[in-house]
């Protein structure tokens, strides 16, 4: 029964991922792309958590945590870059 829920959740998150991807490709500004990127990575984190459950591997949660850390630093860095100009 649990698997049905997991698959529904993964499907919904997948659609959200596609929508964010549309914004990522479409732009129009760099900041829009960064905002979309932020959402993309967070959806990926939930994706990793779901995979961790399906595969029954707790170690994947560490991957999710590091991914969150890197995504945060990445967004901050690009925001700085946008602010300072080119």
């Amino acid at each position: 029964m649990v698997n049905i829920f997991i698959y529904i959740a993964a499907a919904l998150a997948g659609v959200a991922l596609l929508l964010a991807l549309y914004r990522f490709i479409q732009g129009p500004s760099d900041a829009d792309r960064v905002a979309a990127f932020d959402v993309l990575t967070i959806i990926s984190i939930t994706g990793i958590v779901l995979v961790a459950f399906i595969e029954d591997r707790g170690i994947y949660l560490d991957v999710a945590l590091i991914y969150a850390l890197l995504s945060f630093l990445g967004v901050i860095a690009v925001a700085r870059y946008i602010e300072r100009g080119f």
Binding site: I4, L12, A13, A16, R23, A36, V39
Partner: peptide, 29 residues
């Protein structure tokens, strides 16, 4: 647990929808 998972990803979906539909950057953020 399963119900919470589905509710959570529904909100993610709304987020994606908002990202596409909102008219400018600040609303999208």
């Amino acid at each position: 647990g399963g119900l919470l998972l589905v509710t959570g990803s529904t909100f993610l979906l709304f987020g994606g929808l908002g990202l596409v539909r909102m008219p400018d950057l600040f609303n999208r953020i």
